[in-house]
Design a protein around this nucleic acid. Structure first.
Length: 273
DNA sequence: AAACATTCCTGCACGC
DNA sequence: TGCGTGCAGGAATGTT
Protein backbone atom coordinates (compact mmCIF):
# COMPACT_ATOMS: atom_id res chain seq x y z
CA UNK A 1 0.00 0.00 0.00
CA UNK A 2 0.18 3.33 0.42
CA UNK A 3 2.33 3.68 3.49
CA UNK A 4 2.28 6.82 5.61
CA UNK A 5 3.59 9.28 2.96
CA UNK A 6 1.07 8.15 0.36
CA UNK A 7 -1.84 8.33 2.81
CA UNK A 8 -0.71 11.78 3.89
CA UNK A 9 -0.70 12.90 0.27
CA UNK A 10 -4.19 11.52 -0.28
CA UNK A 11 -5.34 13.39 2.81
CA UNK A 12 -3.99 16.65 1.42
CA UNK A 13 -5.52 15.93 -1.99
CA UNK A 14 -8.95 15.32 -0.52
CA UNK A 15 -8.78 18.64 1.29
CA UNK A 16 -7.69 20.44 -1.89
CA UNK A 17 -10.46 18.75 -3.85
CA UNK A 18 -13.02 20.19 -1.47
CA UNK A 19 -14.20 17.30 0.65
CA UNK A 20 -13.92 19.34 3.85
CA UNK A 21 -16.82 21.61 4.75
CA UNK A 22 -19.21 19.93 2.36
CA UNK A 23 -22.47 18.32 3.36
CA UNK A 24 -22.85 14.62 2.64
CA UNK A 25 -25.84 14.06 0.37
CA UNK A 26 -25.58 10.29 0.13
CA UNK A 27 -23.41 7.26 0.65
CA UNK A 28 -23.66 4.30 -1.73
CA UNK A 29 -22.05 0.88 -1.77
CA UNK A 30 -21.51 -1.04 -4.99
CA UNK A 31 -20.77 -4.36 -3.26
CA UNK A 32 -21.42 -5.71 0.25
CA UNK A 33 -17.95 -5.44 1.76
CA UNK A 34 -14.27 -4.72 1.58
CA UNK A 35 -12.13 -6.30 4.29
CA UNK A 36 -15.14 -5.76 6.55
CA UNK A 37 -18.87 -5.66 5.74
CA UNK A 38 -20.67 -2.43 5.07
CA UNK A 39 -23.54 -1.63 7.42
CA UNK A 40 -26.56 -0.64 5.37
CA UNK A 41 -27.66 1.78 8.10
CA UNK A 42 -24.64 3.99 7.47
CA UNK A 43 -26.04 5.96 4.52
CA UNK A 44 -28.99 7.14 6.54
CA UNK A 45 -26.73 7.95 9.48
CA UNK A 46 -24.34 10.18 7.55
CA UNK A 47 -26.76 12.03 5.26
CA UNK A 48 -26.94 15.75 5.95
CA UNK A 49 -23.77 15.93 8.05
CA UNK A 50 -20.74 18.01 7.15
CA UNK A 51 -17.17 16.74 7.01
CA UNK A 52 -15.32 19.06 9.36
CA UNK A 53 -11.77 17.79 8.97
CA UNK A 54 -9.69 14.99 7.50
CA UNK A 55 -7.12 13.40 9.76
CA UNK A 56 -4.51 10.74 9.14
CA UNK A 57 -3.81 8.28 11.94
CA UNK A 58 -1.19 5.66 11.06
CA UNK A 59 -2.26 4.61 7.54
CA UNK A 60 -5.93 5.39 8.18
CA UNK A 61 -7.86 8.35 6.85
CA UNK A 62 -10.51 9.73 9.19
CA UNK A 63 -13.25 11.97 7.84
CA UNK A 64 -14.53 13.74 10.94
CA UNK A 65 -18.04 15.03 11.43
CA UNK A 66 -19.84 16.39 14.44
CA UNK A 67 -21.10 12.98 15.58
CA UNK A 68 -19.29 10.25 13.71
CA UNK A 69 -16.12 9.50 11.81
CA UNK A 70 -15.69 7.78 8.48
CA UNK A 71 -12.64 5.51 8.49
CA UNK A 72 -10.89 4.55 5.32
CA UNK A 73 -7.78 2.44 4.86
CA UNK A 74 -6.29 2.02 1.40
CA UNK A 75 -4.99 -1.51 1.99
CA UNK A 76 -2.64 -2.51 -0.84
CA UNK A 77 -4.42 -0.96 -3.78
CA UNK A 78 -7.06 1.50 -2.60
CA UNK A 79 -7.51 5.01 -3.96
CA UNK A 80 -9.93 7.93 -3.67
CA UNK A 81 -10.82 10.17 -6.58
CA UNK A 82 -13.33 12.89 -7.26
CA UNK A 83 -15.86 12.03 -9.92
CA UNK A 84 -18.32 14.30 -11.58
CA UNK A 85 -21.57 12.53 -12.17
CA UNK A 86 -21.33 12.59 -15.95
CA UNK A 87 -18.42 10.15 -15.73
CA UNK A 88 -19.13 6.44 -15.49
CA UNK A 89 -18.20 4.34 -12.51
CA UNK A 90 -15.10 2.25 -13.13
CA UNK A 91 -14.17 -1.32 -12.38
CA UNK A 92 -13.51 -1.78 -8.62
CA UNK A 93 -15.35 1.37 -7.59
CA UNK A 94 -16.85 0.16 -4.31
CA UNK A 95 -18.02 3.23 -2.38
CA UNK A 96 -19.51 6.55 -3.51
CA UNK A 97 -19.72 9.52 -1.17
CA UNK A 98 -21.98 12.09 -2.79
CA UNK A 99 -21.50 15.65 -1.62
CA UNK A 100 -23.17 19.02 -1.76
CA UNK A 101 -21.40 20.40 -4.83
CA UNK A 102 -23.00 17.77 -7.05
CA UNK A 103 -19.95 15.55 -7.36
CA UNK A 104 -18.89 12.47 -5.46
CA UNK A 105 -15.76 10.96 -3.98
CA UNK A 106 -15.24 7.35 -5.03
CA UNK A 107 -13.22 4.66 -3.30
CA UNK A 108 -11.66 2.22 -5.75
CA UNK A 109 -9.80 -0.87 -4.58
CA UNK A 110 -8.98 -3.78 -6.92
CA UNK A 111 -7.54 -6.10 -4.28
CA UNK A 112 -10.14 -5.16 -1.68
CA UNK A 113 -7.73 -5.20 1.29
CA UNK A 114 -9.04 -1.73 2.10
CA UNK A 115 -11.44 -0.68 4.84
CA UNK A 116 -14.42 1.66 4.85
CA UNK A 117 -16.38 2.02 8.09
CA UNK A 118 -18.46 4.56 9.99
CA UNK A 119 -17.85 4.91 13.74
CA UNK A 120 -19.51 7.07 16.37
CA UNK A 121 -17.00 9.61 17.71
CA UNK A 122 -17.41 8.25 21.22
CA UNK A 123 -16.45 4.72 20.10
CA UNK A 124 -13.40 5.82 18.16
CA UNK A 125 -10.68 5.64 20.83
CA UNK A 126 -11.53 2.05 21.64
CA UNK A 127 -12.13 0.96 18.08
CA UNK A 128 -10.38 -2.21 16.96
CA UNK A 129 -8.26 -0.44 14.37
CA UNK A 130 -6.79 2.17 16.72
CA UNK A 131 -6.64 0.43 20.06
CA UNK A 132 -3.23 -1.16 19.57
CA UNK A 133 -1.50 1.42 17.41
CA UNK A 134 1.93 2.67 18.41
CA UNK A 135 3.24 6.22 18.29
CA UNK A 136 3.21 8.46 15.21
CA UNK A 137 6.75 8.58 13.79
CA UNK A 138 6.60 12.31 13.04
CA UNK A 139 5.49 13.13 16.57
CA UNK A 140 8.39 14.62 18.61
CA UNK A 141 7.58 12.02 21.23
CA UNK A 142 9.08 9.46 18.89
CA UNK A 143 12.86 9.73 19.00
CA UNK A 144 15.97 7.63 19.49
CA UNK A 145 15.53 7.30 23.23
CA UNK A 146 11.93 6.23 22.81
CA UNK A 147 12.87 3.65 20.18
CA UNK A 148 15.66 2.38 22.41
CA UNK A 149 13.21 1.92 25.28
CA UNK A 150 10.51 0.09 23.36
CA UNK A 151 12.98 -2.18 21.59
CA UNK A 152 14.41 -3.61 24.82
CA UNK A 153 13.22 -7.18 25.18
CA UNK A 154 12.15 -7.73 21.57
CA UNK A 155 13.93 -10.49 19.72
CA UNK A 156 12.34 -9.45 16.45
CA UNK A 157 14.61 -8.45 13.58
CA UNK A 158 14.69 -4.66 13.52
CA UNK A 159 13.01 -4.46 10.12
CA UNK A 160 10.04 -6.52 11.26
CA UNK A 161 9.99 -4.53 14.49
CA UNK A 162 9.74 -1.20 12.67
CA UNK A 163 6.90 -2.50 10.50
CA UNK A 164 4.91 -3.65 13.53
CA UNK A 165 2.17 -1.01 13.86
CA UNK A 166 1.96 -1.69 17.59
CA UNK A 167 5.42 -0.17 18.05
CA UNK A 168 5.50 2.73 15.62
CA UNK A 169 2.93 3.34 12.89
CA UNK A 170 3.18 4.18 9.23
CA UNK A 171 6.40 2.38 8.27
CA UNK A 172 5.68 -0.32 5.70
CA UNK A 173 7.81 -2.61 3.60
CA UNK A 174 9.26 -0.01 1.25
CA UNK A 175 10.29 2.61 3.77
CA UNK A 176 11.60 0.06 6.29
CA UNK A 177 14.36 -0.96 3.87
CA UNK A 178 15.14 2.63 2.91
CA UNK A 179 15.25 3.73 6.56
CA UNK A 180 17.65 0.98 7.65
CA UNK A 181 19.97 1.69 4.76
CA UNK A 182 20.10 5.37 5.69
CA UNK A 183 20.67 4.43 9.33
CA UNK A 184 23.44 1.95 8.37
CA UNK A 185 21.76 -0.84 10.32
CA UNK A 186 21.40 -4.39 9.00
CA UNK A 187 17.71 -5.38 8.80
CA UNK A 188 18.31 -8.74 10.48
CA UNK A 189 19.69 -7.20 13.68
CA UNK A 190 17.62 -8.16 16.73
CA UNK A 191 15.78 -5.14 18.13
CA UNK A 192 16.94 -5.65 21.72
CA UNK A 193 20.59 -5.64 20.64
CA UNK A 194 20.45 -2.22 18.99
CA UNK A 195 22.62 0.38 20.68
CA UNK A 196 21.24 3.73 21.73
CA UNK A 197 23.24 5.35 18.92
CA UNK A 198 21.72 3.03 16.35
CA UNK A 199 18.25 3.80 17.68
CA UNK A 200 18.98 7.51 17.32
CA UNK A 201 20.04 6.99 13.69
CA UNK A 202 17.00 4.85 12.93
CA UNK A 203 14.50 7.26 14.50
CA UNK A 204 15.96 10.24 12.71
CA UNK A 205 16.11 8.31 9.41
CA UNK A 206 12.44 7.43 9.76
CA UNK A 207 11.54 11.08 10.16
CA UNK A 208 13.78 12.26 7.33
CA UNK A 209 12.71 9.63 4.83
CA UNK A 210 9.00 9.90 5.57
CA UNK A 211 9.13 13.69 5.28
CA UNK A 212 11.06 13.57 2.01
CA UNK A 213 8.66 10.96 0.67
CA UNK A 214 5.67 13.12 1.60
CA UNK A 215 7.25 16.11 -0.15
CA UNK A 216 7.85 13.99 -3.24
CA UNK A 217 4.27 12.82 -3.50
CA UNK A 218 4.98 9.36 -2.08
CA UNK A 219 6.25 6.35 -4.03
CA UNK A 220 4.63 4.62 -6.98
CA UNK A 221 5.96 1.10 -7.43
CA UNK A 222 3.23 -0.14 -9.72
CA UNK A 223 -0.24 1.13 -9.02
CA UNK A 224 -0.29 3.93 -6.46
CA UNK A 225 -2.00 7.13 -7.63
CA UNK A 226 -2.99 10.08 -5.50
CA UNK A 227 -6.52 11.49 -5.57
CA UNK A 228 -5.71 13.59 -8.61
CA UNK A 229 -4.57 10.52 -10.54
CA UNK A 230 -0.88 11.40 -10.28
CA UNK A 231 1.95 8.98 -9.53
CA UNK A 232 4.49 9.70 -6.79
CA UNK A 233 8.15 10.58 -7.37
CA UNK A 234 9.97 9.22 -4.37
CA UNK A 235 10.60 5.84 -6.05
CA UNK A 236 13.23 7.67 -8.10
CA UNK A 237 15.13 8.38 -4.90
CA UNK A 238 15.20 4.80 -3.61
CA UNK A 239 18.66 3.70 -2.52
CA UNK A 240 17.90 0.00 -2.04
CA UNK A 241 14.24 -0.90 -2.64
CA UNK A 242 13.99 -3.18 -5.70
CA UNK A 243 17.65 -2.44 -6.46
CA UNK A 244 18.91 -5.95 -5.71
CA UNK A 245 21.78 -7.01 -7.95
CA UNK A 246 22.65 -3.40 -8.69
CA UNK A 247 25.52 -1.32 -7.30
CA UNK A 248 25.17 0.36 -3.94
CA UNK A 249 25.09 4.10 -4.58
CA UNK A 250 27.25 4.63 -1.52
CA UNK A 251 29.95 1.94 -1.60
CA UNK A 252 29.64 0.37 -5.04
CA UNK A 253 29.00 -3.07 -3.52
CA UNK A 254 26.05 -5.25 -4.49
CA UNK A 255 22.58 -4.60 -3.08
CA UNK A 256 21.01 -7.81 -1.79
CA UNK A 257 17.48 -9.04 -1.35
CA UNK A 258 16.32 -11.39 1.39
CA UNK A 259 12.99 -12.35 2.94
CA UNK A 260 11.90 -11.52 6.48
CA UNK A 261 8.52 -12.49 7.83
CA UNK A 262 7.47 -13.19 4.27
CA UNK A 263 8.36 -9.73 2.95
CA UNK A 264 11.24 -8.73 0.67
CA UNK A 265 14.05 -6.80 2.31
CA UNK A 266 16.66 -4.85 0.35
CA UNK A 267 19.99 -3.93 1.89
CA UNK A 268 23.70 -3.38 1.37
CA UNK A 269 25.87 -5.93 3.23
CA UNK A 270 28.84 -3.58 3.18
CA UNK A 271 27.18 -0.35 4.39
CA UNK A 272 24.80 -1.92 6.91
CA UNK A 273 26.41 -3.61 9.92
C1' DA B 1 3.16 -17.22 -13.07
C1' DA B 2 5.12 -15.75 -8.83
C1' DA B 3 5.10 -11.73 -6.37
C1' DC B 4 2.90 -8.00 -4.21
C1' DA B 5 2.70 -1.57 -1.22
C1' DT B 6 -1.35 -4.35 4.47
C1' DT B 7 -3.34 -6.25 8.45
C1' DC B 8 -5.37 -9.81 11.29
C1' DC B 9 -5.52 -14.28 12.92
C1' DT B 10 -3.75 -18.84 13.85
C1' DG B 11 -0.68 -21.92 15.67
C1' DC B 12 3.77 -23.17 17.23
C1' DA B 13 7.55 -22.90 20.61
C1' DC B 14 8.94 -21.52 24.75
C1' DG B 15 8.97 -20.31 29.81
C1' DC B 16 6.93 -20.18 34.24
C1' DT C 1 -0.71 -29.23 32.37
C1' DG C 2 -2.19 -24.78 31.31
C1' DC C 3 -1.61 -20.26 30.43
C1' DG C 4 0.61 -16.12 28.42
C1' DT C 5 3.83 -14.21 25.25
C1' DG C 6 6.37 -13.51 21.02
C1' DC C 7 7.02 -14.49 16.52
C1' DA C 8 6.45 -16.55 11.68
C1' DG C 9 3.38 -17.75 8.32
C1' DG C 10 -0.93 -17.75 5.94
C1' DA C 11 -5.02 -15.73 4.17
C1' DA C 12 -7.89 -12.17 2.09
C1' DT C 13 -7.64 -10.71 -3.64
C1' DG C 14 -6.68 -9.00 -8.59
C1' DT C 15 -3.10 -7.59 -11.53
C1' DT C 16 1.10 -7.81 -14.02
Amino acid sequence: MPELPEVENVRQNLMELGLVGREILDLQFHRPDLRTRFDLNWPERVRGYRIAAIERRAKFLIFHSEEFAILSHLGMSGSWRKRDLTQNLEKHDHVSLKIQDGTEFVFNDPRRFGIFEVWENSDLPACRWFRHLGVEPLNPKFNGDYLYQISRGSQQPVKTFLMDQKRVVGVGNIYASEVLFRALVRPSRRAHKLTREECVRIASSIKTILKKAIQNGGSTIRTYRNSKGEAGNFQNRFKVYERDGRDCLQCGGLIRISVQAGRSTYWCPKCQC
